[in-house]
Amino acid sequence: MGTGLFVGAFIALSVAAVLLLGLLSVRRLRLLRTERELARAADRLRGVAAALVMDGERPPALSTEDAELLARVLWDFSRQITGSGREEIAEYFEEVGLVDRQLAILASGAAWRRAQAAFVLGDACSARAIPALVEHLRDPDTAVRSAATRSLGRLRATEAAGGIVDAMADRRIPLALACGILIEIGAGGVPEITALLVHTDPRSRSTGVQLLGLLGSAADADRLRPLLTDPDGSVRAQACLALSRLAAGDIGETLRARLSDADPLVRAAAAEALGELQDEDALDDLLHMAAVDVFDPARAAASASARIDPEALLAAATGLDAGQHIAEAATRVWAARQ
């Protein structure tokens, strides 16, 4: 009887397994067929979407499924183009009511729906969504705040830079995301970014310095100079690098003074900055630093020397007291010439 029960259970389980595999296979085939149909429909609708984006041609009447698919194609297009095509996309989504629907969800939906709405609004290209997205930089949900930030970048919302900077300083949005979006917004956000330079938190000051170095111009160098004597070493180091990016004409002497900073990372950053600027007046100091300083500044000084005057570096490498960093940099110079 025991054996009979075992055999019966075995047969039942085997049948169940076969049925389950069969069901999964059928489901997989249906999904593949749906994917192929969707891909064909998307191919067909790309032409319709391209005509809308390029020539403002409105699509013919579409089924609900095709209208949803067209929306997805347009969202994809909105990420690929700049200029008047994005205005056409915005106009279309306003006409079909998508922007209003997503704004309504953003105001009152569950957190995951608010996040989704915030995301979609960025690809819908409508500037009308900007105030609501800025408001949601204070949303209680992290995903909503991140989606709102991302969409403000997609919309190149210069007027949102202040809100993003505040949210970043308060740690309401991830630092990397905020920096990326501020870079995407571009030079228009610079006035807001300068507010970070006087923040009480050195991490915020450091971030502000980095961003100004990436987005600012030579005219912003005067805002950064005071940060070279900031109490925090990371801020001073970032100020050296940012000033070299801005390439302000008279910054060499100020940076050379940082070669004797108490913080080795500041000395390394100053060396890197002087190399970037190809400051010949710094060469002797850099070669000395490369021979005697601790690892990071010595290495940076050797690399900077190679940039400024490779022949001088090669000559220094023949000295008995050249040190490993000069030797290493000289080897790279020599190898690049082969």
């Binding site: 998307a42 191919d43 790309r46 032409g47 979407a49 391209a50 005509a51 984006v53 390029m54 020539d55 194609v73 994809d76 297009f77 690929q80 183009i81």
Partner: peptide, 16 residues
Amino acid sequence: DDPGIVALVSYKLGRS
């Protein structure tokens, strides 16, 4: 390899 880019570029150049 992006069909969206192909569609946009092809349309613009084709219409031109």
